[in-house]
Design a protein around this nucleic acid. Sequence first.
DNA 1: TGATTAGGATAGAGCTACTATCCAACTCGT
DNA 2: ACGAGTTGGATAGTAGCTCTATCCTAATCA
Lengths: 207, 207
Amino acid sequence: MQLKELSGRTGVSAASIKYYLREGLLPAGETIHATRAQYSARHVERLELIQALRRIVGLNIEQIRGLLKIADDGAPRLALLAAVQRVVLHLDTPAAGGGDVRAPATDAVVRLRNWPDYPSDARNALNAHLELMKSLNIPVSGELLDNYSKAMDDVAELDIAATTAPDSDDQLILTAAVGMHMHSQLLLKLLALAQASHAIRRYEQGP
Amino acid sequence: MQLKELSGRTGVSAASIKYYLREGLLPAGETIHATRAQYSARHVERLELIQALRRIVGLNIEQIRGLLKIADDGAPRLALLAAVQRVVLHLDTPAAGGGDVRAPATDAVVRLRNWPDYPSDARNALNAHLELMKSLNIPVSGELLDNYSKAMDDVAELDIAATTAPDSDDQLILTAAVGMHMHSQLLLKLLALAQASHAIRRYEQGP
DNA sequence: TGATTAGGATAGAGCTACTATCCAACTCGT
DNA sequence: ACGAGTTGGATAGTAGCTCTATCCTAATCA
């Protein structure tokens, strides 16, 4: 398969494919001659992954490059999953800060859900976020956190189960990133519906 | 208060304030003379709102302008809240499409939570999103949806309670937008922690 | 043989959110 | 009264990002 066919099959313009090649997102095709290269099904898969991460998840080129590099370096899947989380959760931007901090609320969640008591990027991010909400005067009750974490516990089980099935790392990235994104959007839309429902009650029927 | 003091008090550069004035985000100050204008506490409040919507919630200028226009046109709070939801949930981009569609899963949620059975942007967005997840082969069980919606029901109650207190529309926008955003981010981080926990179990201790 | 394609390089476009500069009119502190 | 400073208004430039287009030579397939 040559460039034009790769383009036609994925719906990505030839110019963009060249751009991705330049940026190192897409590995070079197998060079047959000085001006001819062969692309394989792997290139199609990779290109579709890139498209999904750009258009659905909204990652930028730099973030995608980082993920693909980790995958191509043969990192273990647990590390790859952690990397996906870092970019989807925007843990790469806020300068990290203090490292492993403990927060009572987070500890309580971990104990309640019987999750392993390990430090992780996700845990640090959660602690930092709870601090931030506190400083913004947005209350988060323990009960609410329980409800949230229960729901997330359920969904994570499905998500992780899905990531064991795929045979390629590209598939894992796709499943994890798209899954996290879609679930978070689902939550957001449910929250909006819930808010709208409560608002109708309060503003139209209430005092 | 003149421009420079407004700048110093809010930490926004004078050039940026001029830009916001040009773009119609910030109302012009009270013109004293051809080359002198007075800004008030309302300008400080408005500027802080703009900053929060930009830096925390991540809205763009166009979206912020839209919200502020609705508020300044004296729309009822229910409409204002709906507008905030539209931008925070990105309901303004996907070309809307079919209008009021019904989906069994959404209906079930509404009945279960005893929410009023009204069509709304949020409801349409939820229906569309569930369709999208289905088409992407991401399973969403009824049980999961129940857990999600229960958690969102709880949080919405708090959120809406918070929006009745503020006396200015600017405050309402701030509370609703920042609240929705922070809650969605909280969810996301909990999901990451849950995923990481499940992944550790599965990859390190599992078979 | 001639239209097409590859790779490589480079330049430009289109968007967003500022940021900077310049100007003439005016005001304030001293 | 004078000079430093500020204002609104206009205009232009910057920076980052993601492409998109053009130009070139070499090689290929029909």
